[in-house]
């Protein structure tokens, strides 16, 4: 059968237009593309570019992890598991043990989180459930600012303001009333594990509160109203509707905050004193994985030294991957439940 030019593209014709067509219509018809099978080139290119970019993000994460592990390998091979259990950090004799760094990192972060958790959750509750809307906007913005201040600025403030203040006012008080614990005994210096924990706490609070706020806002309004309609007070509404729905999210927020504290580098490096030894007292200088890398990396003279420092980085990234993956899964789970019910 012979096809006339116009009959080739009926599928593309707008059905609302009269079939006969105007002159203009007919003229356009010649430029219409033939119906093709498969994806047009332009779509293919678009999907290719955006897909490649998306893949790059995954590759970046894998690459960071892999490169750090490869770079740390000489030290891993040399010291094995002893690296994790030894307290000996002696670059001059090429002896490297990570325990003091792990200890300092874990203790400072957990201490910071212990302080930040009630504050972070409290702030989020205040902003999303308690304060009137206009006030919560203002307070929320100010808390966001707290997260926006660069860590080097916190560090500077820690060296010259917070550290001395803790030494002069807080440490004597702690020593007097809690001095029976070895944690609160010892010399009073401005650079200490306590200073690092304090500054980390300040930095982690806005983080925890922001995630908690998101978690609370995932609580359906209908649950809140149901509680109010039963005659619940505000706090009872929080207990009945908000908190039960948010447990895993709050845990996720806290773990995410912990991850942030574990990886914080500069502010800690400036106030912790960088002393690679474990001591019971919080008043003593200490060190962390991240701050040690920041301090010593450019001074590391031998390849093994560099590799040992990178192995500290490997321990750090493995811990923080574990922490972040756990936290994200907890939070995702919660938001997914929101969509299904």
């Amino acid at each position: 059968m012979e096809l006339k030019p116009l009959e080739r593209e009926p599928a593309l014709r707008d059905p609302s237009q009269p079939l006969a067509g105007t002159v203009r219509h007919r003229a356009l018809a010649h430029r219409w593309p033939r119906l093709k099978v498969g994806v047009p080139l332009s779509e293919f290119v678009f999907d290719g570019i955006t897909g490649a970019a998306a893949l790059t993000v995954v590759v970046l994460l894998l690459a960071v992890t892999t490169v750090v592990i490869i770079e740390a390998w000489p030290a891993v091979g040399r010291f094995g598991l002893r690296f994790l259990t030894s307290t000996d950090w002696d670059p001059a004799n090429e002896q490297f043990g990570a325990l003091p760094f792990i200890y300092g990192t874990v203790v400072s972060s957990l201490l910071a989180l212990a302080v930040a958790a009630p504050f972070g959750i409290g702030v989020a509750l205040c902003l999303s459930e308690m304060a009137p809307f206009w006030l919560s906007d203002i307070l929320g913005f100010l808390v966001e600012l707290l997260a926006a201040i660069p860590s080097v600025v916190y560090g500077l403030w820690g060296i010259f303001v917070l550290g001395p203040w803790l030494r002069d006012y807080v440490e004597p008080w702690l020593g007097r009333y809690l001095g029976f614990l070895p944690l609160f005994r010892g010399p009073r210096v401005a650079v200490s594990l306590l200073s690092a924990s304090a500054i980390l706490a300040v930095m982690v609070v806005p983080y925890v509160s922001a995630v908690c706020r998101d978690v609370f806002s995932a609580v359906p309004a209908s649950l809140r109203e149901a509680a109010y309609a039963l005659g619940a007070t505000r706090w009872e509404m929080v207990r009945m509707a908000v908190l039960p729905h948010s447990v895993s999210g709050i845990v996720g927020a806290l773990i995410l905050g912990l991850g942030r504290a574990l990886g914080e580098t500069i502010a800690v490096a400036m106030v912790i004193g960088n002393r690679p030894a474990i001591s019971a007292s919080l008043f003593m200088p200490s060190t962390t994985l991240a701050s040690a890398i920041a301090n010593e990396f450019t001074e590391a003279t031998s390849d093994l030294y560099v590799s040992a420092l990178i192995e500290l980085g490997m321990v750090l990234i493995l811990i923080s991957l574990l922490v972040n993956v756990t936290a994200r899964l907890l939070i995702y789970n919660l938001t997914r439940r929101r969509f299904s019910s």
Binding site: V64, T265, I293, I310, G313, L316, S320, V323, N324
Partner: peptide
């Protein structure tokens, strides 16, 4: 990736 410590990105 947002949670990877910045110092590790440096390495």
């Amino acid at each position: 990736l947002m949670g990877v410590p910045s110092i590790v990105i440096g390495i």
